[in-house]
Structure formats: C-alpha cells, structure tokens
C-alpha cells in the first residue's frame, strides 16, 4: 500500500497539483460546494423519511425528485476529493483523520446500502401507509449523523497533530497511522 502511495506521489499529475499555486485551493473550494449540495439535499431526503420537511410528497416521490441531485453532488464531491488525495497521497495515507473519515464513509455506505435494499422491497407499502418502520427512520438519522462526522473528520485532515513527522506520538497513534519510528521513542515517552 505504501509503495502504491509513494508511486502515486511521484506521478507528474500529483506533483503538478501539489506545486501549483491555485489548483489546490480551487479544487478544495469546489469540494466544499459539492459537500454542501450532497449533504444539504441528503438532509431533505432524510428529513422526509423521518417525517419532516416535504410532507406533501410521498417518500418515493421525494426520492425520485431529490436523490438524483444528491448523487450528482456525491460524484462531484468524490471526484474533487480524489484529486485532493492525489495531490498529497503520502500525507493523507498517514493521516489519522483521513483514516477515520474513510472508515466513517464505509459505515455510511453500508447504512445506505442496507436502507435502499429494504426500501426496494418495502417502499410501496411505505407510500401506501405513509409510514416507515422505526429502524428505517433510525437509519435515515444515522445517515445524517455519519455524514456530519465525515465532514468533521474531513475538515480535521488539514491539521497535523498526529502526523508521522510530529514525534513523539503514542504507540497507538503510530500504529493507527502506519508510522514506523525508532522504538526508543516509546522508552522516552514512558520515562516522562
């Protein structure tokens, strides 16, 4: 994995992004705008599922009207996010918050997958009774909470309290960010 990240960092595209004065801030600003589109539209989809917001629309109407925009926002957000990763692969690879963010995105993805699988089976009944099961409401809420945490951990990537070059770090932190250091560092830490 580290070899791959090293190789990625050595590609000319990565070097160009890293060294350009304006590309990185432009991509970063676009990333923020796409987050707002993705998270903001998802908010209204999840609000409808929990019984708030656009109550005049059925759940399936709401999904068919808003989810396409959410997906467009998602694709653009991921694309700009990948470019940001591509600009600084090694730093992101060793970044604690980046790893937390990926883990939270995995959870959000599993939650979305489970939700949509259930909805495909039962969605018609939800529309007919204008009622969805408690666990599905919980899943909509969990989706918002997880994406909120993704935004928070994403913002934290820019801060480098736990970077490899900020030693001494505890053994746990170095383990979590795949950082190999001289073992003497821990003896020094235990000494304090």
């Amino acid at each position: 994995m580290l070899n791959f990240v090293d190789w990625l960092a050595s590609t000319s595209g990565s070097i160009a992004l890293r060294e350009s004065l304006y590309m990185y801030p432009w991509i970063e600003s676009a990333h923020v705008l796409f987050i707002a589109i993705f998270f903001g539209t998802l908010l209204f989809v999840d609000l409808r599922l929990t019984g708030y917001g656009f109550k005049n629309l059925s759940i399936s109407q709401m999904n068919s009207k808003i989810l396409p925009l959410t997906i467009i926002g998602f694709i653009l957000m991921i694309t700009t996010g990948l470019l940001l990763f591509y600009a600084l692969p090694i730093r992101n690879y060793h970044n604690l918050f980046f790893r937390i963010k990926l883990f939270l995105m995995l959870l959000a993805g599993l939650n979305a997958w489970h939700f949509h699988r259930t909805m495909n089976r039962q969605g018609k009944a939800w529309d007919k009774n204008s009622f969805i099961p408690f666990w599905m409401k919980a899943s909509a809420t969990i989706s918002l909470v997880l994406w909120g945490l993704v935004i928070i951990s994403g913002r934290m990537i820019a801060y480098n309290w736990f970077d490899c070059d900020k030693q001494p770090q505890s053994e746990l932190v170095n383990f979590l960010i795949s950082c190999t250091v001289d073992p003497e560092i821990y003896e020094y830490l235990n000494g304090i």
Partner: peptide, 29 residues
C-alpha cells in the same frame, strides 16, 4: 467543522429552493 455543517444545511435549502425557482426540480410542487 460545525461551520461546514451549517453550510451544508444552508446549502440544501438554497439548492432545493433556487433550483425549484429555476424549474430544475420539484416542478409539480
């Protein structure tokens, strides 16, 4: 981070509201 989450919430209201005004979404409402 919370400033960003606020931006997300405002962003949703702006995108859905203004895209409706533009006739892009929710045309039946």
């Amino acid at each position: 981070s919370f400033h960003l989450i606020g931006l997300g919430i405002l962003g949703g209201a702006v995108v859905i509201g203004d895209f409706r005004l533009l006739g892009i979404l929710m045309k039946t409402e």
